[in-house]
């Protein structure tokens, strides 16, 4: 369960997030949509505990900066976060050791799934940007977090990896994890979201549940709101 309560984030005079509140239950997938500069990455970094903010963020009931919350979190940053001098396999070993976990084969299974197993001994700096993104995904998932946040996870991925990632989203939902995906690619998440939040100028301008079948499509709603054509 992820709970974001009245979060405001300011950079000097600029308010990047204004009184943002939402929650994602266990086994739910939420998508975060919005134009460039809407504040999506900022709220994601606040959840990840990377930024200071006003308000409260709870992961499975624990304040996000606590060690208990950090243990439960998986984070895929917008730009692949890779160490040039570590091999692919060592990245996952590093994550497991840092989270004080034993490898039960999850690392190899993830690498195989994202077609990185044959690159296990390749250095981070030798990977293409797409492969770095795949590795970044594996690093976020290897310690089996219960709250996972993805910031533009599909950018740079090949079709096979996108297919795998979509399957991962569904498996995470089935396993009871809370999943938050920030993306520009509305059509790529249309099939499996449970909740959708549309951001503009640092605040939510619309909130939609998948069960709301009578209203316009998510894409239509997005364009109506972000191009200023209609109210939510």
């Amino acid at each position: 369960m992820l709970q974001v309560n009245h979060v405001t984030k300011k950079y000097g005079k600029l308010t990047a997030n204004r009184d943002v509140s939402f929650q994602i239950g266990d086994g739910e997938i939420a998508v975060l949509l919005g134009p460039n500069g809407a504040g999506k990455s900022t709220i994601i970094k606040c959840i990840a505990g990377l930024l200071r903010f006003e308000g409260e963020i709870l992961l499975d009931g624990f304040v996000n900066k606590t060690l208990d919350a950090k243990k439960r979190l998986g984070y895929v940053p917008e730009m692949p976060a890779i160490y040039d001098m570590l091999t692919v396999g060592e990245h996952l070993e590093f994550m497991l050791r840092a989270y004080k976990m034993e490898d039960d084969g999850t690392a190899d299974r993830l690498l195989e799934r994202f077609e990185l197993l044959d690159k296990k001994n390749k250095l981070g700096k030798e990977l293409s940007k797409g492969m770095q993104q795949k590795l970044s995904l594996c690093c976020a998932l290897v310690h089996r977090p219960s709250v996972i946040i993805f910031d533009e996870p599909m950018v740079g991925l090949d079709p096979h990896a996108i297919k795998q990632l979509k399957e991962v989203f569904l498996e995470l939902r089935q396993s009871g994890a809370s999943v938050l995906i920030s993306t520009h690619m509305i059509d790529s998440v249309e099939a499996y979201w449970d909740k959708a939040y549309i951001m503009k100028d640092g605040a939510f301008v619309a909130e939609r549940s998948a069960s709301d079948t009578t209203e316009a499509s998510l894409e239509d709603l997005f364009f109506a709101l972000t191009e200023g054509g209609a109210d939510a």
Partner: peptide
């Protein structure tokens, strides 16, 4: 690349071990 695997470190101490491996390669 040389020997692969970090081999040591658990929790925060793996950061120092990672630096050792990175420095060796770099």
């Amino acid at each position: 690349v040389g020997k692969t695997g970090l081999g040591k470190g658990f929790g925060a101490s793996v950061i120092a071990q990672k630096h050792r491996v990175e420095n060796r390669r770099g």
